[in-house]
Design a protein around this nucleic acid. Structure first.
Lengths: 126, 126
DNA sequence: TCAATATTTCCATTATATTGGAATTATGGA
DNA sequence: TCCATAATTCCAATATAATGGAAATATTGA
């Protein structure tokens, strides 16, 4: 629960949510801090503050690449959050189909699409 | 996105998350404010503050019953949040199985359990 | 080594959230 | 009507979060 609360706090702020969503769209490649700030129009100090926050929550991973620090979305943490919410904040009949089943209990099923690009097309804008 | 952010803000605070979880466990019956405060040990004014917050986010519904005001979890809002997170904050292969499919695209599948009680048993404690 | 670039840390400011005591409102029963 | 109960609103205190300029740190290439 501690971890879920931290992840919720991480995502419950407009700037951080937009950072995280941007990085999800970048997939495993990630994006350098500077590129994030440029795309979203965030001042360096503010950006660092939020990146550090998201990293502390376990929602981002960081690696240095030359002068840049490249951030990637931590999908495992997001998965854990979704599992927590499904198990603790849902009533399966009333709420989400297939909820209240832990990830390990979920049956794998046919994938509709496979690539980031494909799924990105169906994503909603702001 | 506005709604998702509001819901995330609602759940990103320990007291509110525990209130919401308690109400999820109560199902459609819900619980009176006083009973919530007693079970969780929250002072009346503080409780009212958080209940109002959760109601503004659309995470709770309230109805008066005599002198009491009974609160229930708004499962539809929770469902919408899970859908938003799956579609916007996940990469299906890397993250959650079956993610990035909107609720309407999801195939209904066999339910493992049906009652609140049954699913409550498998829920994690704090 | 030096300059340029990328990013973070430091720090002060401002903004927002949380808390709970006391007063207030609403309801039901005697 | 009057009292007890249930909850909210008011308000002030305290705590936590967000912002960004300026200085510091790390890295690369000349």
């Amino acid at each position: 629960m501690k971890a879920a609360l931290a992840a919720l706090t991480g995502l419950s702020q407009e700037t951080r949510l937009s950072i995280f969503r941007l990085l999800v769209r970048q997939g495993r490649e990630g994006l350098a801090a500077g590129a994030i700030g440029e795309q979203l129009g965030i001042a360096p100090a503010t950006l660092s503050f939020h990146l550090a926050h998201l990293e502390r929550c376990g929602l981002l991973d960081a690696r240095r690449d030359g002068r840049s620090i490249v951030y990637t979305a931590a999908f495992a943490t997001m998965n854990a959050l979704l599992t927590y919410l499904s198990e603790n904040c849902c009533a399966e009949d009333a709420c989400c189909p297939g909820a209240a089943l832990s990830a390990s209990q979920r049956e794998p099923r046919a994938r509709r699409s496979r690539s980031h690009e494909t799924s990105a097309r169906s994503r909603r804008r702001d």
